[in-house]
C-alpha cells in the first residue's frame, strides 16, 4: 500500500470518529473535568460561597474522610450492589436464561414477564412500586399478604433497604437474562452430549461444563452491572428519596442531596469524583481478573 493511501486512510478514520469524540468531549469529559475542578472549590448554590467561590484545595476531600453520612452511604451502596446486582440479578437471570432455553408452553409469557421491567421507564417503575408497597390497608402488597393473615406493613419504612434491593432485582433480571442467554447459546449442544456420554448428571454438567464456560459472560455482566448499579439514582430516588433517615441513601442520592439540597456543589462534586475513581477501579479489577474482551 502506498504511503499516501495509508495517510488518506488515517485521516478518513479520524474524520469518522470525530462526531463521537465531540459528543463525548462535550457531555462526558468536560463535565467530568469541571466536576474535578468544582470539587477543589467551595462552590455553593447559596450563601457567600455562591457569590465568590474560592479555591480550597483538598479541603472537600479531607472533610469526606470524617463524614459519617458519606461512609454510611458507601456502605449502603455496597450492600445494595452486592445483593441486587451481583447476587439477585445474576442468579435469577442465569436461572431464567436456563429455564427459557427449554421449550415449554408458557415460554413467551414468562419471557415477557422477565423482560418487561427493563422496558418500563424507571420513574414509572418506581411509582408502580410505590403503590405496591404503600403502607396501610390499601397498599397492593398489604392486600396480598392479608390473604395469609399478615397485618398491613409499612414496607418502605420497616424494611427500606430490602425493598429497594428487591425492586432493583426485579428491574434487572431481564438484562442479566439476555446476557446469560447469549452466553449459553455459545456453548455447543455437542459438549452437553459428550458430557452425558461421559456419565455426567445434570448438576455435574452445570458445574463442570456450563458454569466454567459462562465465566467470561458472568464477568462481563458483573462489570456492566456493578458500575451501573453504583451509579443508580432515579429508581430509588423516586421511591424513597434516600429515606427514611438516610437508610436508602445510595451514594448517587447522597451526591444529589449534598449538591442540591444542602447546596454544597463543591462538596457534592468531591463525592462524585471519589465514586468515579471507585467505579474505574472496580471496572479495571474485573477486566484484569479475566481479561474480558470489552
Amino acid at each position: 500500500m502506498s504511503v499516501s493511501f495509508t495517510r488518506r486512510e488515517a485521516w478518513r478514520n479520524r474524520f469518522l470518529i470525530l462526531p463521537s469524540v465531540l459528543l463525548l468531549a462535550a457531555f462526558v469529559v468536560y463535565p467530568a473535568g469541571f466536576a474535578v475542578y468544582t470539587s477543589l472549590t467551595n462552590e455553593a448554590l447559596s450563601g457567600p460561597a455562591a457569590m465568590n467561590p474560592r479555591f480550597v484545595g483538598f479541603a472537600n476531600y479531607a472533610k469526606l474522610l470524617t463524614d459519617q453520612n458519606f461512609w454510611r452511604s458507601l456502605a449502603i451502596t455496597f450492600w445494595f450492589v452486592l445483593f441486587s446486582a451481583i447476587i439477585g440479578q445474576l442468579v435469577l437471570g442465569l436461572l431464567s436464561a436456563m429455564l427459557l432455553n427449554r421449550r415449554f408452553a408458557l415460554r413467551p409469557l414468562v419471557n415477557a414477564i422477565i423482560l418487561m421491567p427493563n422496558a418500563v421507564p424507571e420513574v414509572v417503575a418506581a411509582l408502580m412500586w410505590a403503590s405496591m408497597l404503600a403502607a396501610g390497608e390499601y397498599g397492593t402488597l398489604n392486600n396480598i399478604v392479608a390473604w395469609f393473615g399478615v397485618d398491613p406493613q409499612r414496607w418502605l419504612t420497616s424494611f427500606p433497604l430490602t425493598m429497594i434491593i428487591i425492586v432493583n432485582i426485579w428491574r434487572g433480571i431481564g438484562f442479566a437474562m439476555i446476557l446469560m442467554t447469549s452466553g449459553l447459546s455459545s456453548i455447543s449442544d455437542e459438549l452437553y452430549e459428550a458430557a452425558r456420554m461421559d456419565g455426567a448428571n445434570t448438576s455435574q454438567i452445570f458445574r463442570r461444563i456450563t458454569l466454567p464456560l459462562l465465566v467470561p459472560t458472568i464477568f462481563l455482566y458483573l462489570l456492566v452491572s456493578t458500575v451501573s448499579t453504583i451509579a443508580i439514582f432515579g429508581l430509588v430516588f423516586a421511591l424513597t428519596r434516600g429515606g427514611p433517615a438516610g437508610s436508602t441513601e445510595l451514594v448517587g442520592i447522597y451526591i444529589y442531596n449534598q449538591s442540591f439540597n444542602s447546596y454544597q456543589l463543591g462538596y457534592g462534586s468531591a463525592v462524585a469524583v471519589v465514586v468515579l475513581v471507585f467505579s474505574l477501579l472496580v471496572g479495571m479489577l474485573y477486566v484484569r481478573a479475566l481479561k474480558v474482551d470489552v
Binding site: 455447543s188 455437542e190 459438549l191 452430549e193 459428550a194 456420554m197 456419565g199 455426567a200 463442570r208 461444563i209
Partner: peptide, 26 residues
C-alpha cells in the same frame, strides 16, 4: 458406549489430560 463427535466436542476449558480423564473423574 463411547462416541467421537463430528466437531470432536472437546471441552474448551479443560486441558487435553482433563478432557481424556473427564469420564473417570466423574
Amino acid at each position: 458406549l463411547a462416541m467421537v463427535f463430528q466437531s470432536y466436542a472437546l471441552y474448551p476449558h479443560m486441558t487435553v489430560a482433563e478432557n481424556i480423564g473427564f469420564s473417570l473423574d466423574l
